[in-house]
Simulated scan of single mutants.
Amino acid sequence: MANPYQVPPPPPPPRRSNNTATILVIVFVVIAAIYGASRVLLADDTKNDNKPSSSASTPGSPSTKTSDPGNPESSSDTSSSWKVGDCGGPDPANKPDGYRPQKCSASGATFKAIDIKEASILPGAIQCPAGTDLMIEVSISYNGGKSGGIPTNTVCGRNLSGDHPGDAGAGGGQLVKGDCVTDQAQEVPCAGSPKGTYKVLGLVKTKSECPSGTTEPMQLTMAVGRPYDVICAEG
């Protein structure tokens, strides 16, 4: 006879089914996917921060005069794309020496690009054609910065007005044949120039290359990148 007070043993715990394991795996995969996506988005944001902007950097002292007659004043622009025939003018957002492209008919246009040269980090290495009134250094800055940047091109500009300091003898721009210089090789206007000034007959590498009529060949100090080392002058 069975003992009426005997308590039957508890049933064994149910076995975990394969469905439960599958659910756990799916949850883990979803979490891993979300984490991976967040990392990709973060990486993309970082890449975007490092993309170059179209703004150009302004040299620290672009208007500083130099004793090198082959290295005139230069400024920077606010665009990385220029071609011959484009016009430009001062950029109010990048004062005091910034320029930006403008339509030639615009009231703010002050010059036209007569040549585009590749950029150079060597002062005086870029020679614009005769008649260039100003040289504009084009560079690309990163992270939207307004300073610094990588030089890309140099715009050789000629004023739209009647003022052309880059013309031969006018006393400005780069030194060219027909300009006038002092005995210290400083360019001055030929008109009304004081006694002791000389007219430039040529710009060459050695004195032996000076043309006939040269009475004052001026040997310049060495400058890396400059295409000439001697000013052939006539007194």
Rank of each mutant, 00 (worst) to 15 (best):
V25N: 12
P13E: 05
G70K: 03
K95D: 14
S212Q: 15
T154C: 02
S212L: 13
K117P: 06
P123S: 14
M218N: 04
L42C: 03
V138Q: 08
A168T: 05
K177H: 12
T110E: 10
E137L: 15
M135H: 04
N159V: 04
Y5A: 13
S107P: 07
I26K: 04
G149W: 01
A119W: 00
A43G: 01
A130M: 03
Q102A: 11
V181F: 01
V200H: 00
P211L: 01
N18E: 13
E187K: 04
S161G: 11
A185G: 00
A33Y: 02
P101R: 05
I34C: 13
D229S: 15
Q6R: 14
S63P: 02
A130C: 00
I231D: 06
G148F: 07
K83H: 14
K95T: 14
Q219C: 03
G124L: 00
V7F: 08
P92G: 06
S212A: 15
W82T: 08
P189W: 04
F111Q: 09
Q184V: 10
P69I: 06
V224T: 15
P59E: 08
V224I: 10
N18K: 13
K117M: 06
W82P: 03
E118F: 10
D133L: 12
V200M: 06
T206A: 14
G169K: 03
P9G: 08
Y198V: 01
P13S: 03
P123K: 15
P129C: 05
T78P: 00
Q219K: 12
S75P: 09
V30L: 10
W82I: 03
A56P: 01
S63C: 12
D49E: 14
P96S: 06
G162H: 08
D167C: 02
N159D: 11
K47C: 09
W82G: 07
R15E: 15
Q6A: 13
G144V: 07
L160I: 01
P72M: 05
D229R: 14
C87D: 04
R15S: 12
A32Y: 07
P90G: 09
Q184K: 11
T78D: 15
A32F: 10
A106S: 14
D45I: 07
G148D: 10
